[in-house]
Amino acid sequence: MIYTASPDNVVMLLGDKSMELFRTAVDGAREDYNRYVGAFPVWAAQDCGRMTFNLIHERIWHRVVDLSEDLDGLHAVEKGTTRNLHIGSQFQVRFKLHDSAGGVVSYPTQTALDFWAEPPATLPSMECVNLAVGYEWDKNLGSMGRAVMSLHVSMDKPLWVIELPRIGGEGSGDISVIQGPVDGPQLPTIVMPSAPAREIGRG
């Protein structure tokens, strides 16, 4: 079947277990960061942005690696400074800070520019959707905001941004769209094999 990469379709195709992994990793990293700030308030106040964001990214990534070990179809891959979570053959995820406009920041290497660019023209069955999962950063408070997921046409131009839904409990599975889908570039398509869509990520 063919789906557009709309927020609803992406969340549905990723499945509950993948979405729960994302939310758990980001929320857990927030707890880790708050614990660090509470234990070392002077150090935290003196940290440059790079130190802060590297710490948060490390905590998200290592939680993702631990949580993905028991899930079929999820593979955490680290190559040098590049870290991707592969979910089936349909999705690649990178973990990123989002600014107030939904943009992400990365060194402009060719690999990064390719990842955040519009999907290339490929055979439909080979197409992969690249997603950003992470958090909003409150510059004024110096703290992590909402846990979010986004789809981009470039690093500073999201097609849409949603708050990661909570799985289980009150409001379970509700999708809160923060931005988009926007007019302009068309949403990429996701071509699923004959297996039922909800088997991706075993959701």
Rank of each mutant, 00 (worst) to 15 (best):
F22L: 07
F22A: 06
R23V: 05
T24H: 13
V26N: 04
V26P: 03
D27M: 10
D27H: 09
D27P: 02
A29Y: 03
R30S: 06
E31T: 11
E31G: 01
E31Y: 08
D32Q: 07
D32S: 10
N34E: 08
N34A: 01
N34T: 01
R35C: 02
F40W: 01
P41T: 01
P41D: 02
V42T: 14
W43Q: 08
W43G: 00
A44H: 08
A44S: 13
D47A: 10
C48A: 12
C48Y: 07
R50V: 06
M51Y: 07
M51K: 12
T52E: 07
T52C: 05
N54G: 07
N54T: 09
L55R: 11
I56Q: 00
H57G: 13
H57E: 13
H57R: 12
E58R: 12
E58D: 15
H62T: 14
H62P: 01
R63M: 09
R63T: 14
V64L: 09
V65M: 10
V65W: 09
V65Q: 14
D66S: 14
L67G: 11
L67T: 10
L67E: 15
S68M: 13
S68I: 11
E69C: 02
L71M: 15
L71S: 11
D72N: 12
D72E: 15
D72Q: 13
D72V: 11
G73E: 08
L74K: 10
H75F: 14
H75K: 15
A76W: 10
A76T: 10
V77S: 13
V77G: 03
E78L: 12
K79Y: 13
G80R: 05
G80L: 06
T82E: 12
T82M: 13
R83Y: 05
R83D: 04
N84V: 15
N84W: 11
N84M: 14
L85K: 07
L85R: 08
L85P: 09
H86L: 15
H86E: 15
I87Q: 03
G88E: 04
G88L: 05
S89M: 07
S89F: 08
Q90I: 10
Q92F: 02
V93E: 03
F95R: 07
L97F: 03
H98E: 00
D99Q: 03
S100M: 03
S100Q: 06
V105M: 06
V105S: 12
P108D: 05
T109D: 01
